[in-house]
């Protein structure tokens, strides 16, 4: 379970997070949406313990991330997978070694078992045959898929996805989101996914939170956000999904009798 309490974070004079409180239950995936530059990645980095809040707390599996030191923090992070927006692959290692890296460094598996696992996960992300290529030799989509393979190869309990499909063609984006869905089904990880691909992401998440100007403006299910009356939420969702406003009005008409927002 991930719990954020009253997170504040400023960069010099710019206050990015102004008191974010959010909870993700065990086994649940939350979609974190909002405009660019509103602090979504900053939230993910706080959960991973890569940034320290000016105020507030982050609990992961009941442990205060900022009170953990040394081995305890390493232990927590060994159960955590993070898909970086840029992929963050090691440029000096090929695709195979990038994916094998966490297994070689943090497990006692033999080289044969590592090979099996890596080949298997690369097959899952559609990268069979690209094992010997270096990050500089592959496309953006392949970099994302390699990074996804690397973050999933240790079967993490918690997964943080920072824009996993940005910059990818629709087919690859679909494959990646499908993969996240199927791995979640198999492993049941707790996750946060930052994405602008709302139509597809809404199909794999159980909860949506919208960040706006440093605060959480909305938390609810994908169905609930579609009928939100908050003008900012409504505008964002309409634009992101490119739903004609007439369609949103028909949502309203359908939802009103049930008394939902």
């Amino acid at each position: 379970m991930i719990q954020m309490e009253n997170l504040h974070k400023s960069f010099q004079d710019l206050e990015v997070l102004k008191g974010v409180s959010l909870q993700v239950e065990k086994g649940e995936i939350l979609a974190l949406i909002g405009g660019s530059g509103h602090g979504k990645t900053v939230i993910l980095k706080h959960v991973a313990g890569l940034m320290k809040p000016d105020r507030g707390r982050v609990y992961v599996n009941g442990k205060d991330v900022y009170k953990l030191r040394g081995d305890e923090l390493e232990q927590l992070r060994s159960h955590l997978g993070f898909l970086f927006q840029s992929g963050a692959l090691f440029s000096s290692l090929n695709v195979f070694d990038n994916v094998a890296f966490p297994l070689r460094e943090k497990t006692r598996l033999g080289e044969r078992e590592i090979r099996e696992k890596v080949i298997n996960v690369l097959e899952q992300v559609g990268l069979s045959g690209a094992e010997d290529k270096y990050p500089a030799q592959i496309s953006g989509g392949m970099i994302k898929r390699t990074a996804l393979a690397r973050s999933l190869v240790r079967n993490p309990e918690i997964m943080l996805f920072d824009e996993p499909t940005t910059g990818l063609d629709p087919v690859i984006a679909h494959i990646i989101l499908d993969l996240i869905k199927s791995v979640h089904k198999d492993l049941g990880f707790t996750g946060i996914i930052v994405s602008h691909e709302l139509s597809r992401v809404f199909q794999i998440v159980q909860k949506v939170a919208m960040l706006h100007e440093g605060l959480i403006l909305f938390v609810g299910t994908p169905e609930e956000i579609m009928v939100s009356r908050d003008p900012v939420v409504r505008q964002f969702v309409t634009e992101a999904l490119r739903i004609p406003s007439s369609a949103m009005r028909s949502f309203d008409r359908e939802e009103k009798p049930r008394g939902k927002e």
């Binding site: 890569l50 992070r77 970086f84 840029s86 963050a88 692959l89 943090k106």
Partner: peptide, 18 residues
Amino acid sequence: GIMRITEQIDAIKLMGLN
């Protein structure tokens, strides 16, 4: 420096490595 700006150092930390 390049590892830092391309988040490779963050990736190392998140693998539980120092």
